[in-house]
């Protein structure tokens, strides 16, 4: 579940929208709850004594879509009505356990793209890694 969410949250929005538009031709989705804005309270804790506290809220979009008897939920940070709708539609489809190669291919392809983008960014950041030496070691 987390892996799919991670891909759908971080993938290119245009490509996700194209996929869902294409899926809509074969599968009938009904919007149960239009995408709307709300808040998520972010819970945090200090790293030594694990004292829990509220860090602040984050803007969140959520949406509910049904496919047959199943309801899919799309929830994501930010003002993202299209993404929330797409995630909800895919969530509804995935719960129906149908084999949808188009969707699987999309997830596989996007996962590779996201991993590559993260690896590139990470490697750029690692270029700033330093090894401070004491003056007498120089």
């Amino acid at each position: 579940m987390e892996k799919t969410d991670y891909i759908l949250i971080n993938c290119c929005l245009n490509e996700l929208q194209q996929l869902v538009t294409s899926l809509e031709n074969n599968y009938s989705f009904q919007i149960v709850k239009e995408p709307s804005l709300g808040l998520t309270m972010i819970r945090a804790e200090d790293s030594v004594e694990s004292q829990e506290f509220y860090l602040g809220e984050a803007l969140t979009t959520d949406c509910e879509v049904s496919f047959g008897d199943t309801t899919g939920y799309g929830i994501c940070l930010g003002d993202e009505p299209v993404r929330a709708y797409c995630i909800a539609s895919i969530d509804a489809l995935m719960q129906s356990n149908l084999e949808i190669p188009e969707l699987q291919n999309f997830l596989t392809e996007q996962e590779k793209k996201i991993s590559m983008a993260e690896a590139v960014e990470y490697n750029q950041i690692q270029r700033t890694r330093v090894d401070f030496k004491m003056m007498e070691q120089a």
């Binding site: 709300g38 808040l39 998520t40 309270m41 819970r43 809220e57 929830i75």
Partner: peptide
């Protein structure tokens, strides 16, 4: 806005 969720820590 309505608070709809509390995150995990």
């Amino acid at each position: 806005l309505q608070r709809r969720y509390y995150s995990d820590i």
